[in-house]
Design a protein around this nucleic acid. Sequence first.
RNA 1: GGGCAAUUAGCUCAGCUGGUUAGAGCGCCACAUUGACAUUGUGGAGGUCACAAGUUCGAAUCUUGUAUUGCCCACCA
Length: 918
Amino acid sequence: MPFLSDCHRSTCFPFFAQSFWYNFIVLEKAYDPKAVEDAIYASWEKSGAFKPESCPKDGEPFTISMPPPNATGQLHLGHAVMLALEDIFIRYARMNGKRALWVPGTDHAAIATENVVIKRLKEQGMKDPRKELGREKLIATIAEFVEESKATIRSQVRKMGSSCDWSRERYTFEPSLNRCVNEVFVKMHADGLIYRGHRIVNWDPKLQTTVSDDEVVYKEEKGVFFTFQYGPFQISTARPETKFGDKYVVMHPDDKRYKRYKHGDTFEAEWINGPVRATVIKDESVDPEFGTGVMTITPWHDHIDFEIAERHGLEKEQIIGFDGRLLEIAGEFFGKKIEEARPLIVEKLKAKGLLVKADENYVHNKAVSQRGGGSIEPQIKLQWFIDVNKEVVPWQQKGSKKAEKMSLKQIMHSVVHHGDVEIIPDRFGKTYFHWIDNLRDWCISRQIWWGHRIPVWYRGTDTAVGAKAPGPEWNQDEDTLDTWFSSALWTWSTLVDPKKAADSTLSLEEILKQSPDFQAFHPTAVMETGYDILFFWVARMILMTTYATGQIPFKTVYLHGLIRTRDGRKMSKSDPETMIDPLDMISKYGADALRLSMIVGQSAGADSRLYEEKIAGYRNFINKLWNASRFVLMQCEQAGIDPKMIDKLPENASLSLADRAVLHASECLIADITKGLSAYSLSEAGDRLYSFVWDYFCDWYLELSKGTANHAVLVHVLRRILKLLHPYCPFVTEQLWGQVKKTEDGALILQSWPAPHEKRKDAKAFADLQVLIDVISSIRKLRNDHNVEPGKEITVTIVGKKFCELLESQEAHIRRMCKVGSLTFTTDSVKVENAASAFLSDIEIHLSLAGLFDAGKLKESLLREQAELTKYVSGLQGKLSNKSFVDKAPKELVDEQKTKLAETEEKLKKIEERLKNL
RNA sequence: GGGCAAUUAGCUCAGCUGGUUAGAGCGCCACAUUGACAUUGUGGAGGUCACAAGUUCGAAUCUUGUAUUGCCCACCA
């Protein structure tokens, strides 16, 4: 059987045959990631290994769209964890012979980027950059800034070891993606899914733009809750400044207190600027339990009030201007800012005797802009919206025979409900459905300049929709699109052929049909991102992509959690002490260590805590692996064997117990890691690799192989480890691979994932080695317990019973690893004077303590063990004497407990004998 | 107000479909320094698995309730 027959792609890349990293003949004593990472990355990139063209042509496509970082600045830990996870997915897929494509890119991040640049310009002394520069110049300035940022991000993504295809890098604001945005807008408009209307929107007076519902956050704030007399009613409010135009009082139709007032009744009330005529409205949305059960409404500045006004066809009046100042309707308060006007208005009402109560301890939620941080003022404004309820999109649900017309909401619901899109962890599915249930029409227009311009043109009362002006006298819409409109297309707009996208004669459908990458790589396999943008982005990708392409954007959504500080706080820019900069960590501990620290011990969708000791711990692991490899290489060197020439593994029959055991263990390891990675259980699989390498391979196999090394097995198992570990720690494994790979093999990144060889399994050897390990551990413990000097050779008698032959065959190991001078094996129990003893299952170990013998101490330790075992035995006896247990528990379990009881009782007997003889 | 999650060693976390004498890493204690590795090795201490009730022969694990913490959604005039 050829050794490592699974390296079928070994000859694809001649570049690697004389690769740069063969400089090291003897490895350095400690691994220095800084010295090698950049060069390894460069060689991967240069070789074309990141491109799907390097994968087998008949491989199944496996695509990941990298969530594009905002082209505004620095990579943070959120990006780092995303890159680490996706790189593991993609490397694993690649090694499994799939045509793996990972598309990188950046996002123009409309509001965020414009803000950053405007802030900078202001810091440089500009008072109002928008006014001073004008639209074109501001856009040019931002574009320049973005180019710098992109360069920074690119280099940082590389630092993480991300094996993405840079030749396919995209940017949400480049021409081909802009074409897709325009085409989708036009298509949606034609289908009646995009409309323009006067609706209530979230207006950010600070940023001077609307924002979407998802960009509004609520902050708890303590304020004053005023109750005023309003005609015959008492009404309460926290916002008296909005009350100028109020001319409706609303109450629940069933509220008995107000039974005598009929819907439509009018009355006169003295109010802020004199008497007003008000109308009674009965509406079920009013909660009779809250306050007085009566309220006045301000439809222009409140979502709920707007809805009530719409229901009853009431008038709406604007009170607050878009600059956040009161309008003329406020009379003497005209032009005043809200904070300024509020106390004055209250004062005036009080003077009129209309203030009934002022509750100072009122806590309410204040709407704040997530981006700008300023107060959100609901306003009625002429804006563009996506209709999420109109049932006009043909969609064929899983399991149904033909396409039906569905709404965007319904499609979004359907694809997740039917499992076309699987969300990991699945509990986020619930969150997603809940969000859809509450989804209102999506306001997509923004009053900022940095972004995709709305492809709509006006001439007088004429309107035309399309990317190009129908004629010279037409003016384009001033607004731009919400940034999520363009990033919602990301999984496929990045796969569109830019040449086809530049051809204005083609329709969107034709562009997609004629784009080879789209045809080959869409839908993508997995979307990996933070759960915090499930709504912003993931949901919108599903919405837009199913509509525009008829395909789901991805089959699996894998959501990761937030990375927090050691004490569970959010890392924030405003508090630099809490921040861990991934680049600092890479330069200190290496990218591999950082990657492991963010993956192992973390589960999907859960927040995790990161701190430097954790990263250092994984750095130690990487170094352990390095030194294990160093050991293997030194063994080969001493024997005059070139590890690169090692090709065949001897037949099992000719191998030592330890060799057979480690081969068995490594075969089992393959199965476990493969299963774990296929199921996206990265933490479990990573943990398994960690303990295999450290606790089994290094601590036992390498120790046992000292003096009796089988070079073929050493190199074979090491190669296996490097392959299995490669997705997690690409740099160090690639570096070491260069030392131990077969000469004709190429880089590790393109090696095939190992398949288990059943013939190499030997469970008996594995179990036998465990017996030896237990014996060695027990002798070491005896030495330690009885303070035997570390250098002192000891005399040991082992009563091996059925294991006698096995242990005798491993005598040399026992002698060396426990510093045993005189070692005697017997089949039957013997009496050893002045000895400390350990009792394993069917094995007794007696360590002669001549000269060191301390009867008191020995007695003490025996008594302790006796107590422990007695407790255990009584537990087992209790179980076994319980009839229901014996009757109902599975037979194997009962037998197992019986065996354990017998063994433990035997041990106890021995201990009692020893105690008697002391 | 509605929903979701967490609670296991000093700290950070595993423990999957109920059966382990409840595990790991870091930290701690003792010992070890020229042969892969002190970014190390050997051995050890340390846990009523938040609490209560229930289901079961058997519960860290399942059910219900309670408490504490965190998050998401709704937005109360």
